[in-house]
Computed example of a mutant assay.
Amino acid sequence: MSTTTGTNSELALRDGARLHYRDSGAGAPAPVPVILLHGWGASGDFFERQTALAGRGLRLIVPDLRGHGRSPGVPGAPLSIAMLAADLRELIAHLELGRYSLVGWSMDAMVAWEHLRGDGLGGLDKLSVVDMTAKIVTDAAWSDGLTGGYPETMVAPTAAAVRANWGRFADISAAKLFARGASPDAALLARLGALMRANAAEGLAQLWTDMARQDYRALLPALGERCQYIYGKESRLYAEATFHHLARMTGTTQLVGLAGAGHAPQWEQPEAFGAALLRHLAADRSGGAGAL
């Protein structure tokens, strides 16, 4: 059962799948709604510590993307980043959002980038990329993927491990969300692991394989100052230098490193994370202050 507050709704998608989403603060005077996109193997519940932002003038839309949470998808239909981006497009159209901001955490930063690459930047107000790189696979020319190096030869074994024992892989992945050296609360760790284990292994293996094919570096310069990067300074997945490099590639000064946070800063540092979102959403595109 989700603990994320707001109106729970379902959208019937083009192929018969149903997309579950929460809509909070819909009556707020905020000029632009914010869509929070969870990561691989997670669900909208992973943003539950941000629900208080709906009381601070924001409209928050939090979907469970296909293959995650309450949006299981169509049995037998393969999952891909492009498919999730198409679902996002349908949700935006269904809610009649002329303008919107996106917050993409982990894999779903790629969903946001895929949406923007396919549909253009016309409707985008702001984008926050949370602890994610533009290309996870590393090679001789690209060291800013998964920390420690993640060559293409490791992709198939990772997907095979997900298929073979997703329960164990989910528990390991949940532990990697937290800051290096941290000892997360056992009950919280168990709960996040259970949320992840509830998702189907096959779809996640397909998404991991597809995610590893993606490269969004060419898109970054078009985003400029409307894009900010939020990352955990103690992330187990990505190096701090990676986000400085991505910011330079994007042409943005909007870079926020949160101390005491790992791959999921929205969990470990929710107040600082929320403040970073609010500052970015309130700024005009030249970096000046605006009003929410």
Rank of each mutant, 00 (worst) to 15 (best):
G203K: 07
G232Y: 09
L207P: 02
E234W: 08
K233C: 11
A239W: 02
A205L: 07
E225V: 00
C227H: 01
M196G: 08
D210M: 03
L246Q: 05
A222I: 00
I230Q: 15
R248F: 02
H245G: 04
T209F: 03
A222V: 01
T209P: 03
A200N: 13
D210S: 07
E202Q: 15
D215K: 13
I230N: 15
L207K: 03
D210F: 06
A222F: 00
Q206F: 04
A212Y: 07
L237F: 13
R226I: 03
N199C: 14
T209D: 08
L220G: 07
L219M: 14
M211Q: 13
S235H: 07
L204W: 05
Q228W: 09
R213N: 11
C227S: 13
G232F: 06
L223T: 01
E225K: 09
L207C: 07
Y229W: 15
F243P: 03
H244D: 07
M211H: 09
Y238T: 04
R197K: 15
R217D: 09
S235K: 11
Y229N: 12
A201S: 10
R226W: 03
E234Y: 05
H245I: 06
H245V: 14
G232P: 14
Y229V: 12
Y238M: 14
R248Q: 14
N199A: 15
P221R: 02
E240M: 10
G232K: 12
Q206S: 01
P221E: 02
N199W: 09
T242H: 04
I230C: 14
Y231I: 08
E240F: 02
R226D: 03
